[in-house]
Design a protein around this nucleic acid. Structure first.
Lengths: 201, 201
DNA sequence: CAAGGAGTCGGACATATGTCCAGAAGTTAG
DNA sequence: CTAACTTCTGGACATATGTCCGACTCCTTG
Protein backbone atom coordinates (compact mmCIF):
# COMPACT_ATOMS: atom_id res chain seq x y z
CA UNK A 1 0.00 0.00 0.00
CA UNK A 2 2.72 2.32 -0.90
CA UNK A 3 1.30 4.65 -3.42
CA UNK A 4 -2.17 4.42 -4.80
CA UNK A 5 -3.79 4.44 -1.40
CA UNK A 6 -5.58 7.29 0.25
CA UNK A 7 -5.67 7.59 3.99
CA UNK A 8 -9.25 7.62 5.05
CA UNK A 9 -10.48 7.64 8.61
CA UNK A 10 -13.25 5.22 7.86
CA UNK A 11 -11.60 1.89 7.79
CA UNK A 12 -7.89 1.95 7.59
CA UNK A 13 -6.70 2.77 4.16
CA UNK A 14 -8.74 2.87 1.04
CA UNK A 15 -7.95 2.39 -2.59
CA UNK A 16 -9.00 5.27 -4.81
CA UNK A 17 -12.00 3.32 -5.88
CA UNK A 18 -13.05 2.70 -2.32
CA UNK A 19 -12.39 6.30 -1.43
CA UNK A 20 -14.73 7.28 -4.19
CA UNK A 21 -17.46 4.97 -2.95
CA UNK A 22 -17.10 6.31 0.56
CA UNK A 23 -17.15 9.84 -0.68
CA UNK A 24 -20.31 9.26 -2.65
CA UNK A 25 -21.87 7.78 0.44
CA UNK A 26 -20.97 10.59 2.80
CA UNK A 27 -22.05 13.02 0.16
CA UNK A 28 -25.40 11.37 -0.35
CA UNK A 29 -25.69 11.14 3.42
CA UNK A 30 -25.49 14.88 3.78
CA UNK A 31 -28.11 15.49 1.14
CA UNK A 32 -30.33 12.76 2.48
CA UNK A 33 -30.32 13.92 6.09
CA UNK A 34 -30.87 17.46 4.99
CA UNK A 35 -34.06 16.43 3.27
CA UNK A 36 -35.36 13.65 5.46
CA UNK A 37 -33.95 14.45 8.86
CA UNK A 38 -32.11 12.19 11.24
CA UNK A 39 -35.13 10.21 12.25
CA UNK A 40 -35.95 9.09 8.72
CA UNK A 41 -32.41 8.60 7.60
CA UNK A 42 -31.38 5.08 6.68
CA UNK A 43 -28.30 3.53 5.19
CA UNK A 44 -30.50 1.92 2.59
CA UNK A 45 -31.78 5.24 1.32
CA UNK A 46 -28.36 6.79 1.38
CA UNK A 47 -26.97 3.87 -0.57
CA UNK A 48 -29.69 4.13 -3.16
CA UNK A 49 -29.11 7.83 -3.57
CA UNK A 50 -25.39 7.28 -3.87
CA UNK A 51 -25.94 4.60 -6.49
CA UNK A 52 -24.26 2.01 -4.31
CA UNK A 53 -25.47 -1.38 -3.21
CA UNK A 54 -26.74 -1.70 0.33
CA UNK A 55 -24.22 -4.37 1.15
CA UNK A 56 -21.43 -2.13 -0.03
CA UNK A 57 -22.61 0.74 2.08
CA UNK A 58 -22.65 -1.49 5.12
CA UNK A 59 -19.10 -2.47 4.30
CA UNK A 60 -18.00 1.03 5.17
CA UNK A 61 -20.58 2.21 7.64
CA UNK A 62 -22.11 0.11 10.32
CA UNK A 63 -25.10 2.38 10.84
CA UNK A 64 -26.44 5.80 10.14
CA UNK A 65 -24.86 6.99 13.35
CA UNK A 66 -21.51 5.85 12.13
CA UNK A 67 -22.04 7.58 8.82
CA UNK A 68 -23.03 10.85 10.43
CA UNK A 69 -20.16 10.80 12.85
CA UNK A 70 -17.82 10.20 9.97
CA UNK A 71 -19.25 13.17 8.14
CA UNK A 72 -18.65 15.38 11.12
CA UNK A 73 -15.16 14.03 11.54
CA UNK A 74 -14.32 14.85 7.96
CA UNK A 75 -15.52 18.38 8.24
CA UNK A 76 -13.55 18.83 11.41
CA UNK A 77 -10.43 17.66 9.66
CA UNK A 78 -11.02 19.94 6.76
CA UNK A 79 -10.51 22.97 9.00
CA UNK A 80 -7.25 24.85 8.58
CA UNK A 81 -4.81 24.66 11.49
CA UNK A 82 -5.27 27.24 14.23
CA UNK A 83 -3.26 30.32 13.47
CA UNK A 84 -1.34 30.73 16.68
CA UNK A 85 0.77 33.69 15.61
CA UNK A 86 -0.57 37.21 15.50
CA UNK A 87 -4.00 38.28 16.74
CA UNK A 88 -4.83 38.88 20.39
CA UNK A 89 -5.82 35.73 22.25
CA UNK A 90 -9.40 36.77 22.78
CA UNK A 91 -10.05 37.38 19.14
CA UNK A 92 -8.41 34.12 18.21
CA UNK A 93 -10.48 32.19 20.69
CA UNK A 94 -13.69 33.68 19.41
CA UNK A 95 -12.75 32.85 15.85
CA UNK A 96 -11.91 29.25 16.65
CA UNK A 97 -15.11 28.73 18.60
CA UNK A 98 -17.25 30.25 15.91
CA UNK A 99 -15.60 28.14 13.30
CA UNK A 100 -16.30 24.98 15.27
CA UNK A 101 -19.83 26.02 16.07
CA UNK A 102 -20.70 26.69 12.47
CA UNK A 103 -19.15 23.50 11.10
CA UNK A 104 -22.50 21.96 10.40
CA UNK A 105 -24.78 24.84 11.12
CA UNK A 106 -25.80 25.38 7.53
CA UNK A 107 -27.79 22.16 7.67
CA UNK A 108 -29.55 22.03 11.03
CA UNK A 109 -30.79 18.53 10.36
CA UNK A 110 -27.30 17.37 9.69
CA UNK A 111 -26.12 19.06 12.84
CA UNK A 112 -28.78 17.48 14.99
CA UNK A 113 -28.05 14.20 13.27
CA UNK A 114 -24.35 14.34 14.01
CA UNK A 115 -25.03 15.07 17.63
CA UNK A 116 -27.56 12.29 17.91
CA UNK A 117 -25.24 9.95 16.09
CA UNK A 118 -22.31 10.61 18.33
CA UNK A 119 -24.39 9.98 21.41
CA UNK A 120 -26.02 6.89 20.06
CA UNK A 121 -23.46 4.75 21.78
CA UNK A 122 -22.77 2.49 18.84
CA UNK A 123 -19.53 0.61 19.21
CA UNK A 124 -18.37 1.69 15.76
CA UNK A 125 -18.72 5.29 16.73
CA UNK A 126 -16.64 5.13 19.90
CA UNK A 127 -13.23 5.43 18.34
CA UNK A 128 -14.21 8.21 16.00
CA UNK A 129 -15.82 10.03 18.87
CA UNK A 130 -12.60 9.95 20.81
CA UNK A 131 -10.71 11.42 17.90
CA UNK A 132 -13.30 14.11 17.54
CA UNK A 133 -13.10 14.99 21.20
CA UNK A 134 -9.34 15.23 21.02
CA UNK A 135 -9.38 17.34 17.93
CA UNK A 136 -11.77 19.82 19.45
CA UNK A 137 -9.84 19.84 22.67
CA UNK A 138 -6.64 20.58 20.82
CA UNK A 139 -8.09 23.37 18.76
CA UNK A 140 -9.52 25.14 21.76
CA UNK A 141 -6.33 24.71 23.71
CA UNK A 142 -4.33 26.00 20.80
CA UNK A 143 -6.41 29.14 20.83
CA UNK A 144 -6.81 29.73 24.55
CA UNK A 145 -3.56 28.39 25.94
CA UNK A 146 -2.81 24.79 26.85
CA UNK A 147 -3.82 23.56 30.26
CA UNK A 148 -5.46 26.76 31.38
CA UNK A 149 -8.74 26.92 33.31
CA UNK A 150 -9.96 29.25 30.58
CA UNK A 151 -9.40 26.60 27.95
CA UNK A 152 -11.19 24.01 30.06
CA UNK A 153 -14.12 26.29 30.63
CA UNK A 154 -14.32 27.25 26.98
CA UNK A 155 -14.36 23.61 26.02
CA UNK A 156 -17.27 23.00 28.34
CA UNK A 157 -19.02 26.01 26.92
CA UNK A 158 -18.48 24.80 23.38
CA UNK A 159 -19.96 21.39 24.03
CA UNK A 160 -22.77 22.99 25.95
CA UNK A 161 -23.56 25.26 23.06
CA UNK A 162 -23.62 22.33 20.67
CA UNK A 163 -26.03 20.56 22.97
CA UNK A 164 -28.41 23.44 23.23
CA UNK A 165 -28.39 23.88 19.50
CA UNK A 166 -28.59 20.16 18.86
CA UNK A 167 -31.57 19.79 21.15
CA UNK A 168 -33.28 22.57 19.34
CA UNK A 169 -33.23 25.05 22.19
CA UNK A 170 -31.64 27.61 19.91
CA UNK A 171 -30.04 27.98 16.50
CA UNK A 172 -26.37 27.40 15.85
CA UNK A 173 -25.89 31.03 14.92
CA UNK A 174 -27.36 32.09 18.21
CA UNK A 175 -25.13 29.70 20.07
CA UNK A 176 -22.10 30.98 18.20
CA UNK A 177 -22.93 34.41 19.54
CA UNK A 178 -23.34 33.14 23.04
CA UNK A 179 -19.98 31.45 22.75
CA UNK A 180 -18.47 34.74 21.71
CA UNK A 181 -20.03 36.35 24.74
CA UNK A 182 -18.63 33.58 26.89
CA UNK A 183 -15.18 34.03 25.44
CA UNK A 184 -15.33 37.77 26.03
CA UNK A 185 -16.11 37.09 29.63
CA UNK A 186 -13.57 34.40 30.18
CA UNK A 187 -10.64 35.90 28.37
CA UNK A 188 -11.17 39.08 30.34
CA UNK A 189 -9.80 37.45 33.44
CA UNK A 190 -6.33 38.40 34.66
CA UNK A 191 -3.59 36.19 33.21
CA UNK A 192 -2.73 34.29 36.34
CA UNK A 193 -6.32 33.38 36.93
CA UNK A 194 -6.22 32.05 33.41
CA UNK A 195 -3.07 30.06 33.61
CA UNK A 196 -3.82 28.70 37.02
CA UNK A 197 -0.25 29.17 38.11
CA UNK A 198 1.87 31.94 39.46
CA UNK A 199 3.38 34.04 36.72
CA UNK A 200 7.15 33.87 36.66
CA UNK A 201 8.68 37.31 37.04
CA UNK B 1 -56.66 16.17 39.54
CA UNK B 2 -59.81 15.43 41.42
CA UNK B 3 -58.79 12.70 43.76
CA UNK B 4 -57.78 9.25 42.72
CA UNK B 5 -55.63 10.56 39.90
CA UNK B 6 -51.93 11.09 40.12
CA UNK B 7 -50.31 13.65 37.91
CA UNK B 8 -47.67 11.90 35.93
CA UNK B 9 -45.62 13.50 33.23
CA UNK B 10 -45.86 10.45 31.04
CA UNK B 11 -49.24 10.68 29.45
CA UNK B 12 -51.70 13.03 31.00
CA UNK B 13 -53.15 11.72 34.18
CA UNK B 14 -52.87 8.24 35.49
CA UNK B 15 -55.03 6.15 37.74
CA UNK B 16 -53.21 4.69 40.72
CA UNK B 17 -53.04 1.40 38.95
CA UNK B 18 -51.46 2.99 35.91
CA UNK B 19 -49.10 4.97 38.04
CA UNK B 20 -47.97 1.74 39.58
CA UNK B 21 -47.37 0.15 36.21
CA UNK B 22 -45.40 3.13 35.04
CA UNK B 23 -43.40 3.16 38.21
CA UNK B 24 -42.55 -0.47 37.89
CA UNK B 25 -41.44 0.17 34.34
CA UNK B 26 -39.20 3.14 35.10
CA UNK B 27 -37.84 1.21 38.00
CA UNK B 28 -37.07 -1.85 35.96
CA UNK B 29 -35.65 0.45 33.31
CA UNK B 30 -33.06 1.80 35.69
CA UNK B 31 -31.99 -1.64 36.78
CA UNK B 32 -31.98 -2.95 33.26
CA UNK B 33 -29.87 -0.20 31.76
CA UNK B 34 -27.47 -0.42 34.65
CA UNK B 35 -26.85 -4.05 33.86
CA UNK B 36 -27.14 -4.16 30.10
CA UNK B 37 -26.20 -0.67 29.01
CA UNK B 38 -28.04 1.63 26.66
CA UNK B 39 -27.15 -0.28 23.56
CA UNK B 40 -28.70 -3.53 24.74
CA UNK B 41 -31.67 -1.96 26.43
CA UNK B 42 -35.08 -2.78 25.02
CA UNK B 43 -38.60 -2.09 26.07
CA UNK B 44 -39.28 -5.77 25.81
CA UNK B 45 -36.66 -6.67 28.37
CA UNK B 46 -37.72 -3.88 30.66
CA UNK B 47 -41.32 -5.02 30.45
CA UNK B 48 -40.37 -8.57 31.25
CA UNK B 49 -38.34 -7.50 34.23
CA UNK B 50 -41.15 -5.29 35.44
CA UNK B 51 -43.60 -8.15 35.06
CA UNK B 52 -45.63 -6.18 32.56
CA UNK B 53 -46.82 -7.15 29.10
CA UNK B 54 -44.96 -5.68 26.17
CA UNK B 55 -48.10 -4.12 24.78
CA UNK B 56 -48.74 -2.42 28.09
CA UNK B 57 -45.23 -1.05 28.25
CA UNK B 58 -45.62 0.42 24.81
CA UNK B 59 -48.82 2.03 26.00
CA UNK B 60 -46.77 4.30 28.20
CA UNK B 61 -43.44 4.53 26.48
CA UNK B 62 -42.93 4.76 22.79
CA UNK B 63 -39.32 3.65 22.88
CA UNK B 64 -36.39 3.13 25.14
CA UNK B 65 -35.36 6.70 24.51
CA UNK B 66 -38.68 7.89 25.76
CA UNK B 67 -38.39 5.72 28.83
CA UNK B 68 -34.92 6.96 29.66
CA UNK B 69 -35.84 10.57 29.16
CA UNK B 70 -38.78 10.07 31.44
CA UNK B 71 -36.53 8.59 34.09
CA UNK B 72 -34.26 11.60 33.92
CA UNK B 73 -37.19 13.95 34.04
CA UNK B 74 -38.48 12.30 37.18
CA UNK B 75 -35.20 12.56 38.95
CA UNK B 76 -34.93 16.18 37.98
CA UNK B 77 -38.32 16.85 39.46
CA UNK B 78 -37.46 15.05 42.63
CA UNK B 79 -34.85 17.68 43.44
CA UNK B 80 -35.72 20.13 46.22
CA UNK B 81 -36.27 23.73 45.15
CA UNK B 82 -33.19 25.92 45.00
CA UNK B 83 -32.58 27.57 48.31
CA UNK B 84 -32.30 31.17 47.30
CA UNK B 85 -31.95 32.65 50.79
CA UNK B 86 -28.73 32.51 52.75
CA UNK B 87 -25.40 31.27 51.38
CA UNK B 88 -23.13 33.33 49.18
CA UNK B 89 -24.00 33.12 45.49
CA UNK B 90 -20.87 31.30 44.51
CA UNK B 91 -21.39 28.52 47.00
CA UNK B 92 -25.01 28.19 45.98
CA UNK B 93 -24.14 27.96 42.32
CA UNK B 94 -21.59 25.27 42.95
CA UNK B 95 -24.08 23.30 44.99
CA UNK B 96 -26.78 23.49 42.34
CA UNK B 97 -24.43 22.48 39.56
CA UNK B 98 -23.06 19.57 41.52
CA UNK B 99 -26.53 18.40 42.34
CA UNK B 100 -27.52 18.45 38.69
CA UNK B 101 -24.33 16.82 37.57
CA UNK B 102 -24.67 13.96 39.99
CA UNK B 103 -28.34 13.29 39.25
CA UNK B 104 -27.58 10.12 37.40
CA UNK B 105 -23.90 9.78 38.04
CA UNK B 106 -24.24 6.78 40.30
CA UNK B 107 -25.17 4.69 37.27
CA UNK B 108 -22.94 5.73 34.41
CA UNK B 109 -24.81 3.54 31.99
CA UNK B 110 -28.04 5.21 32.94
CA UNK B 111 -26.44 8.57 32.52
CA UNK B 112 -25.08 7.79 29.09
CA UNK B 113 -28.43 6.30 28.23
CA UNK B 114 -30.36 9.39 29.24
CA UNK B 115 -28.08 11.55 27.19
CA UNK B 116 -28.34 9.30 24.18
CA UNK B 117 -32.07 9.05 24.63
CA UNK B 118 -32.60 12.77 24.75
CA UNK B 119 -30.58 13.27 21.60
CA UNK B 120 -32.21 10.43 19.75
CA UNK B 121 -34.65 12.84 18.19
CA UNK B 122 -37.73 10.73 18.75
CA UNK B 123 -40.91 12.73 18.46
CA UNK B 124 -42.18 11.45 21.80
CA UNK B 125 -39.11 12.78 23.49
CA UNK B 126 -39.31 16.32 22.16
CA UNK B 127 -41.80 17.71 24.62
CA UNK B 128 -40.16 16.14 27.61
CA UNK B 129 -36.83 17.44 26.44
CA UNK B 130 -38.12 20.97 26.36
CA UNK B 131 -39.40 20.66 29.90
CA UNK B 132 -36.05 19.30 31.00
CA UNK B 133 -34.21 22.14 29.35
CA UNK B 134 -36.43 24.69 31.02
CA UNK B 135 -36.12 23.10 34.40
CA UNK B 136 -32.35 23.11 34.23
CA UNK B 137 -32.33 26.63 32.91
CA UNK B 138 -34.49 27.76 35.80
CA UNK B 139 -32.43 26.07 38.44
CA UNK B 140 -29.20 27.58 37.22
CA UNK B 141 -30.75 30.99 36.89
CA UNK B 142 -32.19 30.72 40.35
CA UNK B 143 -28.74 30.09 41.68
CA UNK B 144 -26.69 32.50 39.60
CA UNK B 145 -29.11 35.33 39.02
CA UNK B 146 -31.73 35.58 36.30
CA UNK B 147 -30.65 36.87 32.93
CA UNK B 148 -27.01 37.29 33.76
CA UNK B 149 -24.17 36.39 31.43
CA UNK B 150 -22.81 34.30 34.28
CA UNK B 151 -25.97 32.22 34.33
CA UNK B 152 -25.85 31.75 30.59
CA UNK B 153 -22.24 30.71 30.68
CA UNK B 154 -22.83 28.35 33.55
CA UNK B 155 -25.66 26.73 31.69
CA UNK B 156 -23.41 26.15 28.72
CA UNK B 157 -20.78 24.74 31.01
CA UNK B 158 -23.28 22.42 32.62
CA UNK B 159 -24.46 20.95 29.34
CA UNK B 160 -20.90 20.74 28.18
CA UNK B 161 -19.92 18.82 31.26
CA UNK B 162 -22.79 16.42 30.74
CA UNK B 163 -21.65 15.86 27.19
CA UNK B 164 -18.07 15.14 28.09
CA UNK B 165 -19.20 12.73 30.76
CA UNK B 166 -21.88 11.21 28.57
CA UNK B 167 -19.43 10.62 25.76
CA UNK B 168 -17.10 8.91 28.14
CA UNK B 169 -14.37 11.52 28.04
CA UNK B 170 -14.44 11.71 31.83
CA UNK B 171 -16.45 10.58 34.84
CA UNK B 172 -19.38 12.52 36.21
CA UNK B 173 -17.53 13.15 39.44
CA UNK B 174 -14.65 14.63 37.55
CA UNK B 175 -16.99 16.83 35.56
CA UNK B 176 -18.69 17.96 38.74
CA UNK B 177 -15.31 19.16 39.92
CA UNK B 178 -14.62 20.94 36.69
CA UNK B 179 -17.98 22.63 36.98
CA UNK B 180 -17.04 23.80 40.44
CA UNK B 181 -13.83 25.19 39.03
CA UNK B 182 -15.79 26.92 36.32
CA UNK B 183 -18.18 28.42 38.83
CA UNK B 184 -15.28 29.67 40.92
CA UNK B 185 -13.92 31.39 37.90
CA UNK B 186 -17.14 32.86 36.67
CA UNK B 187 -18.59 34.03 39.94
CA UNK B 188 -15.31 35.74 40.68
CA UNK B 189 -16.03 38.37 38.10
CA UNK B 190 -17.04 41.83 39.29
CA UNK B 191 -20.82 42.16 39.67
CA UNK B 192 -21.47 44.41 36.74
CA UNK B 193 -19.58 42.15 34.42
CA UNK B 194 -21.88 39.46 35.70
CA UNK B 195 -25.17 41.26 35.38
CA UNK B 196 -24.33 42.87 32.13
CA UNK B 197 -25.83 46.13 33.30
CA UNK B 198 -24.78 49.04 35.45
CA UNK B 199 -25.41 48.41 39.09
CA UNK B 200 -28.03 50.73 40.53
CA UNK B 201 -26.62 52.67 43.48
C1' DC C 1 -73.60 -10.20 42.96
C1' DA C 2 -74.20 -8.96 38.15
C1' DA C 3 -72.90 -5.54 34.56
C1' DG C 4 -69.77 -2.51 32.60
C1' DG C 5 -65.49 -0.39 31.98
C1' DA C 6 -60.58 0.41 32.54
C1' DG C 7 -56.35 -1.69 32.22
C1' DT C 8 -53.68 -5.50 31.02
C1' DC C 9 -52.32 -9.55 28.39
C1' DG C 10 -50.31 -12.48 24.77
C1' DG C 11 -49.32 -13.22 20.53
C1' DA C 12 -49.71 -12.27 15.51
C1' DC C 13 -48.26 -8.83 12.42
C1' DA C 14 -45.59 -5.16 9.63
C1' DT C 15 -41.53 -2.82 9.15
C1' DA C 16 -36.70 -1.64 9.74
C1' DT C 17 -31.98 -2.85 10.37
C1' DG C 18 -27.85 -5.31 9.70
C1' DT C 19 -25.47 -9.72 7.86
C1' DC C 20 -24.15 -13.11 4.55
C1' DC C 21 -22.80 -15.12 0.35
C1' DA C 22 -22.28 -16.49 -4.44
C1' DG C 23 -21.40 -14.36 -8.49
C1' DA C 24 -20.63 -10.14 -11.65
C1' DA C 25 -17.77 -6.31 -12.73
C1' DG C 26 -13.65 -3.94 -12.50
C1' DT C 27 -8.49 -3.69 -11.80
C1' DT C 28 -3.71 -5.08 -12.01
C1' DA C 29 0.28 -7.94 -13.25
C1' DG C 30 2.52 -10.96 -16.20
C1' DC D 1 -5.06 -11.11 -23.35
C1' DT D 2 -5.66 -13.68 -19.40
C1' DA D 3 -5.26 -15.06 -14.65
C1' DA D 4 -5.63 -13.56 -10.05
C1' DC D 5 -7.31 -10.39 -7.17
C1' DT D 6 -10.27 -6.74 -5.36
C1' DT D 7 -14.58 -4.51 -4.95
C1' DC D 8 -19.34 -4.21 -5.82
C1' DT D 9 -23.95 -6.29 -6.32
C1' DG D 10 -28.57 -8.29 -5.48
C1' DG D 11 -31.23 -10.67 -2.80
C1' DA D 12 -32.16 -14.00 0.89
C1' DC D 13 -31.89 -14.19 5.67
C1' DA D 14 -32.04 -13.22 10.88
C1' DT D 15 -33.22 -10.12 14.29
C1' DA D 16 -35.19 -6.13 16.52
C1' DT D 17 -38.76 -2.76 17.08
C1' DG D 18 -43.27 -0.99 17.40
C1' DT D 19 -48.45 -1.79 16.46
C1' DC D 20 -52.82 -4.05 16.66
C1' DC D 21 -56.58 -6.55 18.43
C1' DG D 22 -59.56 -9.91 20.77
C1' DA D 23 -59.69 -11.90 25.22
C1' DC D 24 -59.05 -11.77 30.06
C1' DT D 25 -58.80 -9.71 34.93
C1' DC D 26 -59.86 -6.42 38.12
C1' DC D 27 -62.40 -2.82 40.12
C1' DT D 28 -66.33 -0.03 40.45
C1' DT D 29 -71.19 0.79 40.59
C1' DG D 30 -75.93 -0.17 40.99
Amino acid sequence: MSDSLTTEPTRRRLTPRQADTVHRLTDAGVREVRESGYENLSIRDVARRAGVAVATAYTYFASKDHLLTEIFWRRLNALPPVDRSKQPAKRRVIAVLRELALLVSAEPELAAGCTAGMFGGEPDVRQLRLYIGMKIHDRIEAAAGPGTPAARLLELAYFGAMVEAGLGYATYERMADRLAEAAELIMELPPDDRTGQVQPV
